[in-house]
Amino acid sequence: MRIAIFNQKGGVGKTTTALNLGAALQRSGNPPLLIDLDPQGHLSSIHGKTPLESGHSLFAFFQDLRALEELEVDWENIGRLIPAHQQLIKVDSIFGKGPAILNKLRHGLDVLEEKHPERHCLIDCCPYIGVLALNAIFASDCLVIPVSTDYLSLQAADQITRTLQVLEPVMKRRIPRYYLLTRFDRRRRMSDDVRNKLRERYGDEVLDTAISENVTVAESPSMNQDVFRHNASSTGAHDYRALFDELVERGSLPIRTTR
């Protein structure tokens, strides 16, 4: 299963969700492949030991035609990572937006999945619609759309929905998507207001799980750790474990049960 973590708005928890959902998969005995598709490289920086050269990053897949498998690096306690590089910002201007480039990641993952058919792939997307984000959308089986509990994020969710509606005739399919509430503060009425409005618009596509505003979630990346390694008993760890369980229950994360 390929899941893209996507939102056109920054600061909503895309990278944190990719990191901690990946860690939850590993803890279940199903270590995933994470792909950092953001030129800012936040996910790669959390790893902390990725190669600095663009030739060993995802950029080399686009620019130098290197196979995805050649670019993987090990990520202890999570799985594998294909790191980003700031050179990825050039992909739009170098390659344009033809069908070949927009489907490049999908074709690359098809080849990779022949060798690792049961491995899940989580894609951390950049916060804008361009060649990179379109590659993720075209390649994915499912989208998780983090929505922080503020009204601007609610507007961003509507914008994403309109974008996906425009893309559906091109892709000839409707991508399943789930809206994930993040930075949820149960003490604030606005958090409940945003959740209610989101459910009015998108119904069952809104996940029951909400990621609480939590110090552990916020500070663990700065220590190059996922939330479980940083504090497995924290509210943040509980929330991301619940997210994993809900996606499994909904059929979006079929797993080999080892626990």
Rank of each mutant, 00 (worst) to 15 (best):
M1P: 11
N7H: 01
K14D: 02
L19C: 09
A24D: 03
P31R: 01
L33P: 03
S45P: 03
R66F: 00
A67G: 07
L68H: 11
L71V: 00
E72Q: 15
E72K: 15
D74Y: 03
G79N: 02
L81F: 06
I82G: 07
P83M: 08
A84M: 04
H85G: 00
H85R: 01
Q87S: 14
I89T: 12
K90M: 11
K90N: 13
V91M: 06
I94N: 10
F95E: 05
G98S: 12
N103A: 12
N103D: 10
N103L: 13
L112A: 08
C125S: 13
C125P: 09
C126D: 13
P127E: 08
I129C: 04
L132F: 02
L134T: 08
L134Y: 01
T149A: 15
D158P: 00
I160Y: 00
T163L: 12
L164E: 03
L164P: 02
K172G: 08
R177P: 00
Y178L: 15
Y178K: 11
R183C: 06
R189W: 01
V194K: 09
R195D: 12
K197V: 04
R201S: 12
Y202N: 00
S212Q: 02
S212Y: 00
V215Q: 09
S220R: 10
P221G: 03
Q225L: 15
D226C: 05
V227K: 11
N231E: 12
A237L: 00
Y240L: 10
F244K: 06
L253K: 01
P254G: 04
P254Y: 05
P254A: 03
